[in-house]
């Protein structure tokens, strides 16, 4: 059995989705944790110090390359699986079967596409201007706290971010536990743990992200 055979099989493709998904889940904890520094309410001192570390230390910058590789694999593999799976039905049913599964479990492709669009907006709002200012190498970055204040003063930007984070929440509500099933967790006790963890994570992390633009928009932060 060659590695090519493994990763081109339907189970192998799902394993790629699962491993990259778990990697992205871990990244979101770091991202949310760092961003939560805005609630220190110190005019962005703590947040900007964290952002400075992430942008000027070689380790996070190397990990950033891994993050983009993982993200790219997750997106490309996900889109290819979605297109392939949609082609397997042939003729559609006149009455579709919707009672046996959750709507968000059936809509991972759609939710993922919404998140991808949101991600392009998000990266062009913050990551890209920051790296462009640095010349993409280690160097002086822009004041990201001030940038957040400026961006989230617009209502439509806040609405786009809330919608993007809600899509992320539903994507995680299925994706978290599905990722662990895909790597073979079949023990009932562990499935129950991962199910609880998954729903908790899918609520807490997106809610933390949602509260960030809202906090700036309603001037809860100085």
């Amino acid at each position: 059995m060659t590695w090519k055979e493994v990763f081109t099989s339907s189970v192998g493709k799902k394993l790629v989705m699962s491993f990259t998904g778990i990697f992205l889940i871990l990244f979101l904890i770091v991202h949310a944790g760092l961003n939560a520094c805005i609630w220190a309410n110190d005019g962005g001192t703590m947040f900007n110090a964290g952002a400075h570390f992430m942008g000027n230390n070689v380790v996070p910058r190397i990990l950033e390359i891994g993050l983009f590789v993982g993200l790219f694999l997750h997106i490309i593999q996900g889109l290819m699986l979605e297109i392939s799976n949609r082609s397997k039905r042939g003729t559609n049913y006149a009455v579709s079967y919707s009672k046996g599964s959750k709507w968000y479990s059936r809509s991972m492709g759609l939710l993922g596409t919404i998140i991808l669009i949101f991600l392009v907006i998000h990266l062009s709002d913050f990551w890209l201007p920051n790296r462009a200012h640095q010349g993409f190498l280690l160097g002086e970055e822009i004041n990201l706290y001030a940038k957040m204040q400026e961006e989230f003063s617009e209502l439509w930007v806040v609405i786009v971010y809330v919608a993007g984070c809600l899509s992320l929440g539903y994507h995680l509500a299925h994706g978290f536990q599905s990722a662990f099933r895909t790597i073979g967790v079949h023990n009932k006790r562990y499935n129950a743990i991962f199910s609880c963890l998954g729903y908790g994570y899918a609520i807490i992390i997106p809610l933390a992200f949602i509260m960030m633009p809202i906090s700036f928009y309603f001037h809860w932060l100085n």
Binding site: K14, L81, G100, S105, R106, R181, T182, G184, V185
Partner: peptide
Amino acid sequence: ACTNTGACEATCPKEISLSNIARLN
């Protein structure tokens, strides 16, 4: 490819468990 939606388990006349898919994985 399977996306673990659970529709198969819900409709199976013999109630085959979704955990079998995780075991296969």
